[in-house]
């Protein structure tokens, strides 16, 4: 892989507000790249995978790195919030455990101090660890752009955000500003699991589940997998297998098998497709069991 010490020179802009940032994007179009934590972007710039003429740092934009609202109404996480801040958030830990579990396992301490949730999503790696939890939580994201031919603000379900490896539906003049989480319904348990070579590594397979159980019966199941397809995916067959059924060992095993049927794994330096398929079964089963336990039902 091509790699060089020195970054190709660029123009660096540090807007103070979202409005300033989007007008810069409107002006420079695809010559500009947003810089948040830099843990993906600067690596790609060193490898010359990306050579933006203009880098737009969002670090000075106030409020873009805050967690506010409340879990009974709506919780809002700013796009530039670091993994570290999310990891330390009591609200996320207590209510959105699936997201807490994912961010705790991302990279290393230094990476978590730098890496942002918006950068993780916009980088659009199929293995991005915050994607499956957010999909399982039914999160929405807020996208803004400068006045022009399009709506200047749109809210879309996170599920529709990813378009392929490294690709999202963001246009070059748009930026992600916020992630919104709905309240968790009573009787819901959620969990995240990931398999990597070492704990700190990029996921080979990851899975998130949010399951609502009433009187032992699964009412709603949301299951999502990472690193097993060109984008993070929802395992709808696994969800259908569970919904309306009494939770028991057999049905959970069936859901694991159904989940593994939906994956479209690639073979890369991290694992073979067969390995990912076998592991998906196990990890879907385990993540469901853990979510059910948190909903108060032992399997």
């Amino acid at each position: 892989m091509y790699y060089t010490r020195i970054l190709k020179p660029f123009n660096l802009l540090m807007p103070q507000t979202i409005d300033e940032a989007i007008s810069i994007l409107a002006k420079y179009g695809n010559k500009a790249k947003i810089l948040a934590g830099g843990t993906d972007l600067l690596v790609k710039m060193r490898q010359r995978v990306l050579t933006p003429g203009c880098v737009v740092s969002v670090n000075k934009i106030k409020g873009l790195n805050a967690i506010d609202g409340d879990p009974k109404g709506e919780l809002r996480i700013g796009a530039a919030t670091t993994m570290r801040s999310i990891e330390s958030s009591r609200v996320v830990q207590d209510y959105y455990t699936v997201l807490h579990e994912a961010v705790c396992q991302i990279g290393t301490a230094q990476v978590r101090n730098m890496a942002t949730i918006g950068g993780n999503l916009c980088n659009a790696s199929p293995a991005a660890d915050t994607a499956p939890p957010l999909i399982s939580l039914g999160a929405e994201i807020k996208i803004v752009s400068a006045p022009g031919n399009r709506e200047t603000t749109r809210l879309i379900p996170i599920e529709g955000f990813f378009a392929g490896p490294g690709k999202t539906i963001l246009q070059s003049d748009e930026m992600l500003t916020e992630i919104r989480l709905k309240p968790i319904a009573k009787g819901t348990g959620c969990a995240f699991l990931k398999i990597g070579r070492l704990g700190v590594d990029i996921s080979k397979v990851s899975a998130a589940a949010c399951i609502r159980i009433v009187d032992g019966v699964c009412k709603v199941a949301r299951i999502s997998l990472g690193a097993v397809a060109p984008t993070p995916i929802r395992a709808k067959k696994a969800e259908i297998t569970l919904e309306g059924k009494k939770i028991c060992e057999d049905i959970v095993a069936e859901a694991g098998d159904a989940g593994a049927e939906e994956i479209r794994p690639v073979k890369d330096m991290r694992s073979t497709a067969d390995y990912r398929r076998e592991v998906s079964k196990v990890i879907v089963r385990r993540v469901i069991i853990r979510a059910c336990q948190r909903a108060g039902v032992d399997v």
Partner: peptide
């Protein structure tokens, strides 16, 4: 906070 100076402009 501990950060990586190689990935910080």
């Amino acid at each position: 906070k501990a950060v990586l100076s190689c990935l910080t402009l």
